[in-house]
Computed example of a mutant assay.
Amino acid sequence: MAVKKKPQNKGGFFRGLARFMLLLFGLACALGFWLYQYASTPLLQNTPQDFVVASGGVKKVADQLVKQGVIDQALPFLVLARISGKDKQLKAGSYNLTAAVSPWQLLEKLSNGDTTTLTFTLIEGANWRELRKSLNSNPHLRHDTALMSDAELLAELGVSAISPEGLFFPDTYHVDKGSSDLKLLARSHQRMQAKLDKAWAERSANVQLKTPYEALILASLVEKETGHAKDRALVAGVFVNRLRIGMRLQTDPAVIYGVGDSLDGRLRKVDLLTDTPYNTYTRSGLPPTPIAMVGDAALKAALNPAPTTALYFVAKGDGSSVFSNTLDEHNSAVRKYILNR
Results as ranks from 00 to 15, higher is better:
L75W: 15
Q73C: 13
P76Y: 09
K86H: 09
A81N: 06
L97E: 05
V79W: 00
T98A: 04
L80H: 11
T98H: 07
D87H: 07
A99T: 09
F77M: 15
F120Q: 07
N112I: 09
L97M: 07
T121M: 07
T117K: 02
R82W: 12
F77H: 13
Q105D: 08
G113L: 03
K86Y: 10
V101P: 03
T121L: 05
A81I: 15
G113N: 06
S102T: 15
K88I: 15
L78Y: 15
L118C: 07
N112F: 03
D72P: 13
T117G: 03
A99F: 01
E108N: 09
L97I: 10
E108D: 05
I71S: 02
F77N: 13
I71L: 11
S102C: 04
L118I: 11
S102L: 03
D72W: 11
F77A: 03
V101E: 00
Q89P: 06
P103I: 02
V101K: 06
L90Y: 00
F77I: 13
T115Y: 13
S94Q: 13
N96T: 08
N96I: 09
T115L: 12
T116M: 14
L110K: 01
D87I: 08
K91G: 12
S102E: 09
S111I: 13
I71A: 10
T119L: 11
Q105H: 04
L75D: 14
T116F: 07
L80Y: 08
G85H: 07
T115P: 00
R82Q: 04
L90G: 03
